[in-house]
Design a protein around this nucleic acid. Structure first.
Length: 747
RNA sequence: UGGGGUAUCGCCAAGCGGUAAGGCAACGGUUUUUGGUACCGUUAUUCGGGGGUUCGAAUCCCUCUACCCCAUCCA
């Protein structure tokens, strides 16, 4: 039961283990400028979930730094969503605007450090000066203003002495940074707007990159978890916190992939468009992927949380299949919800040989749901069944009522069709049937076998209900916008019939309508006089699926075209030639070495200490190359000469290649001499079969299952046995010898 | 185009040099008074492509390709 942890939890565990933090603090930091959707639910589930798992806590913070877009109605929606999902935030709801004073004083500190300045370029100029992704930007001449002038200007900006756009506070970082975000990012802009909390107290508002990291810090957040598009912002996040030299511990940012679900849209802009153009009835339209929509549709908090858990957390952009969400709600409701009978498309059935009335006891739950509860179903000679449950000319495999096939009315009797009443156009109006008195559910002695039991309602007692059937909002898997809307995403059935107990007893708000799906009494529209139910999700329907022709077009495998490789320079070519000709390196290794100045110089030095061109080339082009990717030669703890020594040990077969890699790992950290490591840890390899054989016997004896599999032809398992033997010897056994020995033993 | 990311089954996703987890979907079957549920089984000789290192590579190295993000005084 070793459930694998996601990468965030792994980071958290590591940080706890190393003592980086004593307690984990996360936060869910939405901007209150729209309704939360299921993507927010993922973020909520991650942030609150991690805090919960590691006995920390999670704050709810409104990132309210842009007064022109934000509003208190959204903070209510956000709070509501978190609570509905069942989480409790630590203390009060936080607001970035609570920190405006402190943020302002941090800005002053930055100015005093010479790390921030007031720029007075126009918006267009700022854009121009920023350069492009391929060209460096240039710094504004205002960057030379004195500390005093900057301080004065900022103060006056704050006091509202300037118009919007006249001045702006920027960090002084690097106008030629390859990361566009680092080209003197904007810290504060002038905004003469009413803030929904601070009113007109402020004329300047901090930007995200300045406010977010500091708000995290102020709250003592340890893990600042956000989505992938903020990866480029991480550098500023660190810059602000480091430059200010704040007292540790400080938070670190980690990014995960935002949630995408097919057949819907998730961006605030597109969602807003749906609402504004009245494609949907509002933010809580049951077809919307908003929390409010899902909730109104009938989704439970548990189902959404389960869904979030099931999709995992990773860094690959992905598009989750709606089927996975649908599974989550079915799975949740299956064990919770009463089963009742509702006839969507009523077809009258008159049971000619039945007289009088009776009440039939029926359990709300099937045998496999361990819940108690039942109701009485009225029964008489006039009932309704669903039109789909009768077929005059049935397709093959049809289990329901036909002129030749009897069917059971669930909980009640078996009926047989006697006559079909049609109108002049041939539409079926009514079925005349007979019932089998000795076939009553639970006391059936008729001996009649039927293929299915269908739902029904008694005519005089049934209640008329409105049913709203929802389908996916968009017809495309990856919709662009309103053009892709599914015109049939909503269909309303106004005269469905439901058994009376649902309305009069109200056993629940969510039901399974037998053989149809899960339904929810609409919290806005439902009244006892005009009941309205939303279809949450259909039951799985293997009959409906079977009827549809399978349409599968096999996809052609994509052909991959190789791009062109940059040619070598003259010097590189010379190196390459000596490597391949004089040293007899294979061209791939030679290529790697020749093209990288750091590697070739390292290689040359190592070679001077011990001339074994091929083996040294291999370790330099592989293992050493990995280290040199992230650091310079000078920063390395090991020397070329030590690498040479290491390879001498391998060449002389004192140690195996496998051990060499282990030794190398240690050299990385300690800088110790390889021969010293080998000696002190007794890593000299074991090549004597007499020593190895008993271990092989033991491993084979301990793994009878795998031995059987191997004998059955699973030759991959050879590697398994070799691995086990190596493990048993602490990696010291000579793998080549082990390989041949194991092969002999098993072969 | 410079930088930052990501590629494992139809869709998610584990895996971190030694037997390619799991879930959804799909497909068979058993049980069933829901064509539901539950249960059992099938579904990756292969990890974006190509090379290399290694006894052994999804995992390390090189290289190519595809996709996402960054040039809002949004977050």
């Amino acid at each position: 039961m070793n459930k694998s942890k996601d990468f965030l939890r792994r980071i958290v565990e590591e940080d706890l283990k190393t003592g980086k933090y004593q307690e984990i603090v996360t936060r869910f930091p939405p901007e209150p400028n729209g309704f939360p959707h299921i993507g927010h639910a993922k973020s909520i589930s991650i942030n609150f979930g991690i805090a919960q798992d590691y006995n920390g806590h999670c704050n709810l913070r409104m990132d309210d730094t842009n007064p022109t877009t934000e509003d208190t109605q959204y903070v209510e929606a956000l709070k509501d969503a978190v609570e509905w999902l069942g989480f409790k935030w630590e203390g009060d709801v936080r607001y970035t605007s609570d920190y405006f004073d402190r943020l302002y004083s941090y800005a002053i500190t930055l100015i005093k450090m010479g790390k921030a300045y007031v720029d007075s370029l126009s918006e267009e100029e700022i854009r121009e000066y920023r350069g492009t992704v391929t060209q460096a930007g240039k710094r504004s001449s205002y960057a030379n203003r004195s500390v005093e002038e900057n301080l004065d200007l900022l103060e006056r900006m704050k006091n509202g002495e300037f118009k919007e756009g006249e001045h702006i506070l920027r960090a002084k970082i690097d106008m030629s940074s390859p990361n566009m975000k680092m080209r003197d990012p904007l810290l504060y802009r002038i905004r003469h707007a009413q803030h929904f909390r601070t009113g007109d107290k402020w004329a300047i508002y901090p930007m995200y990159d300045f406010a977010h990291c500091l708000s995290d810090y102020i709250e003592g957040v340890t893990h600042s978890i956000c989505t992938l598009e903020f990866e480029n912002n991480r550098e500023i996040y660190d810059w602000v916190l480091d430059t200010l030299g704040l007292e540790p511990p400080r938070p670190y940012q980690h990014e995960f992939a935002r949630l995408g679900i097919n057949y819907t849209v998730m961006s605030k802009r597109k969602l807003l468009e749906l609402v504004e153009k009245k494609v949907v009835t509002g933010w809580d339209d049951p077809r919307m992927p908003t929390i409010a929509g899902l909730r109104r549709r009938g989704y439970t908090p548990e189902s959404i949380l389960n869904f979030c858990e099931s999709i995992g957390i990773a860094k690959a952009n992905s598009m989750v299949d709606v089927a996975q969400l649908e599974f989550a709600i079915r799975d949740d409701l299956n064990t919770k919800v009463p089963r009742v009978m509702c006839v969507m498309h009523p077809l009258k059935v008159t049971i000619e040989n039945y007289e009088g009335t009776e009440e039939i006891e029926a359990s709300y739950y099937p045998h496999d749901v361990p819940k108690e509860g039942s109701r009485k179903l009225p029964f008489s000679k006039e009932i309704y069944i669903d039109r789909a449950d009768f077929s005059e000319h049935p397709a093959k495999g049809y289990f329901r009522l036909t002129p030749d096939q009897s069917v059971r009315l669930k909980y009640a009797y078996i009926i047989t069709c006697k006559e079909i009443i049609k109108d002049s156009e041939g539409n079926i109006l009514e079925i005349k049937a007979t019932y089998h008195p000795d076939s009553k559910s639970g006391e059936d002695s008729s001996g009649i076998k039927v293929k299915s039991a269908i739902q029904w309602v008694e005519a005089s007692s049934a209640k008329k209900v409105e049913i709203r059937l929802y389908d996916r909002l968009f017809k495309n898997e990856a919709p662009e916008g309103i053009d892709d809307i599914n015109p049939d995403s909503l269909s309303v059935i106004t005269n469905a019939l439901i058994e009376p107990a649902v309305i009069t007893n109200k056993p629940d708000e969510r039901f399974q309508f037998e053989r149809e799906g899960y339904f929810y009494a609409d919290p806005e529209l439902y009244t006892d006089d005009t009941p309205v139910f939303n279809k949450i999700v259909a039951l799985k329907d293997s009959w409906g699926k079977k009827k549809k022709a399978p349409n599968k077009a096999p996809e052609a495998k994509k052909v991959q075209i190789d791009g062109e490789v940059v040619p070598m320079t003259a010097e590189e070519q010379v190196l390459f030639d000596t490597y391949t000709k004089a040293y007899k390196l294979n061209s791939e290794v030679a290529n790697t070495l020749a093209r990288d100045a750091k590697l070739s110089s390292f290689y040359t030095e190592a070679l001077a200490a011990y001339h074994s061109p091929v083996s040294i080339a291999n370790i330099v082009a592989n293992e050493v190359a990995r280290e040199l990717k992230t650091q310079e030669i000078d920063a390395l703890k090991f020397s070329p000469a030590q690498i040479a020594t290491l390879m001498r040990l391998v060449d002389e077969e004192t140690i195996s290649n496998k051990i060499a890699k282990g030794v190398f790992e240690q050299m990385l950290k300690s800088g110790d001499d390889p021969s010293k490591i080998v000696e002190s840890q007794g890593l000299i390899q074991i090549s004597d079969p007499a020593e190895i054989l008993p271990i092989i016997d033991e491993v084979v004896a301990n793994n009878p299952d795998n031995l059987a599999k191997f004998k059955a032809g699973n030759t991959k398992l050879l590697g398994f046995f070799v691995g086990q033997v190596l493990k048993a010897t602490g990696g010291k056994a000579n793998p080549k010898v082990v390989n041949t020995l194991v092969a002999e033993k098993l072969g």
